[in-house]
Design a protein around this nucleic acid. Structure first.
Lengths: 250, 250
DNA sequence: TGAATACGTTATGTATACAGTAACTGGCGA
DNA sequence: TCGCCAGTTACTGTATACATAACGTATTCA
């Protein structure tokens, strides 16, 4: 008789995947550390089969690495890995912006994007920016990027961008980190808003090359900011770094 | 008592994954068709657990699609999906070329690339090109692209390019298709060689922007060729199209 | 005292049993 | 004759049992 509490509203596999990803991004599991299946079974409440499926998915997602002798370990990232990921994502988003511009986008479709920017403007008007406001900003910004990506109308590209964003987004500890590491964050965010505005303008006027260029420039700026932020810290730890991607990319 | 023949030299999961991918790319399974786990168990010789792991991996790879009510189906691709994939891959390779140029590559590292090009030159010298020669060309070209990607020294980028190439490469039926659909294939391949030569030259001289530009131009040419080839066919079928990516991308 | 080997423990890979759900088919009623 | 409902079948999702391989520890020999 299994006294295991079974929640049938979501699949056990999805539940395990979300739980494990949380553990990974929150820092409960450290880079290089081996993940024990049995331990995962206990912490997630699912049985071994769904846990294994979740581990496979997380490996494909890039958060885990298969150990040749068996099992999985938490993947470790270098500083360059992270800045490369930012540039990679920016390049992909640039392509998405170009597709959007070339393929044409109606004014109606651009409306939600503009609303996002306006909402962010309002947040940035606050002095100083509260933690709550910053958290709202992150959500709004993620929404903006998702909407922009959608405008490309290219499922393969959207899919690829999602994959490239797996690390950057969804790290809950990012907010605090951003506060401490990026005191000049606000100025950076304001410049980001400018970039986004140019991108929308370019898409509206069907200038593909300009739309692409500004998104890539945006990413390069993010890389420079990341380097700057990291220089202030002696040790590069995985999770704070992961968290940084999120803020530096946006 | 299991009379199942167990090959312990490779894991059952890998065996199942390879077998299923073969079935997908060879056309044994048609787009939109639901994949039966039990059927896969019989054809691959592995049991359900490894088969399921393989299915999850193939879904992440983009060859399969999860059905909401359960199970997986063979993913279907539109003509635009395919041309977008080519452009996507070209964009990523452009970034790789730029990284290689900016980060510097020794003459020794470029040697194998040049050898590839020379070997391809020799193949293209034949009149007419035999099927065997074409097959060799495909292998050599894949090697060239892989080597170029490696030069970027960026694991995240290399990983992403691998993913973006999952569809393009590894389709065995591509050769025949290429022969029938692209009678002017040879001329196209010769132009491709030119592009690759320029890319190497740019990397050698550390001209990142030029290296990136030529690889992207290369991809755009491939897209045009794909469109041309497809115009000659009334119906776009998944597998021939998949196969075409391989030849058109290279 | 150190190193190597053997044994035991543990965890992963694999197989299979079980349960629940969705789809299909057949029958009945309008 | 068509549509709807119920029963049945088959497949997926989940759990668990079993086998094998790897790792750690202890003991023995040099």
């Amino acid at each position: 008789m299994a006294e295991r509490e079974v929640d049938r509203s979501v699949s056990q596999t999805v539940k395990a995947q979300l739980a494990l990803r949380d553990q990974l991004l929150s820092g409960a599991l450290r880079p290089g550390e081996r993940i024990s299946e049995l331990q995962a079974v206990e912490t997630t409440g699912a049985s071994r089969t769904p846990v294994r499926m979740a581990l496979v998915r997380l490996e494909e997602e890039g958060l885990l690495e298969a150990i040749p002798s068996g099992g999985f370990m938490v993947k470790a990232f270098s500083e360059r890995d992270i800045s490369d990921s930012i540039e990679l994502r920016g390049t992909l988003e640039g392509l998405a912006a170009r597709f959007a511009a070339e393929r044409g986008v109606s004014a109606r479709e651009l409306e939600p994007l503009k609303e996002c920017l306006a909402a962010i403007d309002e947040l940035l008007g606050q002095v100083p920016i509260s933690v709550d406001a910053f958290s709202s900003y992150v959500a709004l910004n993620a929404r903006f990027h998702a909407l922009l990506t959608e405008l490309s109308r290219s499922p393969p590209l959207i899919r690829q961008i999602d994959r490239a964003s797996a690390l950057p987004f969804a790290s809950p500890s990012g907010f605090v980190m951003a506060q401490s590491a990026l005191p000049e964050a606000k100025q950076i965010l304001i410049i980001g808003q400018e970039h986004h505005r140019v991108a929308i303008d370019a898409i509206e006027n069907r200038e593909g090359a300009r739309a692409e260029a500004v998104m890539r420039e945006h990413a390069r700026l993010a890389v420079r900011n990341l380097r700057l932020a990291l220089r202030n810290r002696t040790h590069l730890d995985l999770l704070p770094a992961l968290a940084l991607i999120k803020t530096a990319t946006d």
